[in-house]
Nucleic acid binder design. Structure first.
Lengths: 224, 224
DNA sequence: CGGAGTGTCGTACCTGGGTATGAGGCCCGG
DNA sequence: CCGGGCCTCATACCCAGGTACGACACTCCG
């Protein structure tokens, strides 16, 4: 089963080079080319490639917009190729946009030829691959965004007792004092007492600010 | 400038294999080995390698804990090696933990030898590299978490007028009605009117739930 | 022109939530 | 065994916030 590839890049030389490189592989067929995003979509819709090599910067319709169109096609279009983005220099706004859109990879054009070839295979197999510098950024971003508890507010969270933390979490879920009391089998006044202490310890004014704190500290997270 | 590497793995065979493989490279020196995390840290502290190859599963102290220790050392320890995690099979809880901890890469042991070698070089250069399957997960996670506005709640957000959205955002910043009125140069009652409409449209009970909605919909984001 | 949508504000009412104060019981560590 | 957290609850007070109803101005559009 050969891998069907199309190449979308505004520079004819680049297309020719990549095409030659990839065609030389026995398991890869270059089945189309296009000089801009719009035509790239056309070619993709007619040739149904497994992988689309897509340059980022192009006239008419840039690679990002084209990638979005291919990865989130209008109703009726069933074909969904993998998209491997290419760029000459690693401006990273593009990277994030492309990954958001669902691209399977992001390579720099100065990568070794062997890398490009293996990237095509990896992407065709449903996996993903990024240029090392991009990987580093993505990890950094991940680590920055993710570290379970953030440090600034979350340290102060240590001042809370287990019960208080529990109450805070329920506040952050939108429950009223009554509901919290019911949930924890407590008198409503007890809940109020806990909340009072939480607000005092964290220097907050009301439950709305408590909710904010819960999100900012990582006690609760969007989508969870 | 050669790259100084140590290998931490509980299987002597694996250590020997990797050591042989890497030592054969003119730009890589294997300067130490260790059979578990605790000793790995010891060796790292004495040999000061550029890169630590670290197995995930190990007796005594697992690779994750050891990685954390190396990447976020106690006061006084200045040396901070790059950590490249290795695993036999790609259980991904480990992956996320390792990346959170600040690891520079994550490879499967069944990767081609050439990949391991180039990975060491990439990591030593300050970049990062992941196994393709890991990359895919990370991207998927990124795309899932990031898409600017989420769709479910954010669509309902479309029902809000600009002014209402503005007010909602200020609520989500923790402002009181008075403060919002001051900020927007309005009567407090006007603010109340807007809030009332927001709550009604979004089917929320109070401003605390409004804050939750703001975070869940992506109107505001933690850390922003 | 007339109506719909938006933004603005007033008056009036009610209650949930936050504050203050005090107090009893439990458990742990010094 | 005693002091100190922690958890629990009561009584009492007050007000920010939420609700209800009505009103006026402006803009856009059929």
């Amino acid at each position: 089963m050969t891998i069907r590839v199309i190449i979308v890049d505004d520079q004819a030389m680049v297309r020719a080079g990549f095409a030659a490189l990839l065609s030389a592989q026995s398991d890869i067929d270059v089945v189309g080319e296009a000089p801009d995003g719009r035509q790239g979509i056309e070619v993709s819709r007619t040739t149904h490639p497994d992988v689309v090599l897509m340059d980022v910067r192009m006239p008419e319709m840039d690679g990002l917009a084209a990638a979005r169109e291919l990865l989130d096609p209008p109703p009726g279009v069933v074909h969904r190729p993998k998209v491997l983005m290419l760029t000459t220099f690693d401006v990273d706004d593009y990277v994030y946009e492309a990954l958001r859109a669902g691209a399977s990879g992001f390579l720099l054009k100065d990568a070794p030829p062997a890398d490009l070839i293996s990237a095509v295979r990896v992407v065709a197999a449903g996996e993903a691959l990024l240029a090392p510098s991009v990987t580093r950024r993505l990890i950094a971003d991940f680590a920055r965004q993710r570290p379970a508890p953030r440090k600034d507010p979350s340290l102060r969270l240590n001042g809370l007792t287990p019960r208080e933390t529990e109450v805070l979490e329920l506040i952050a879920r939108g429950l009223s004092n009554q509901e919290i009391a019911a949930r924890l089998v407590l008198a409503e006044q007890t809940v109020k007492t806990h909340i009072g202490r939480v607000l005092a310890k964290l220097d907050l004014r009301d439950r709305a600010q408590a909710v904010i704190f819960a999100y900012e500290s990582g006690l609760v997270s969007p989508g969870a």
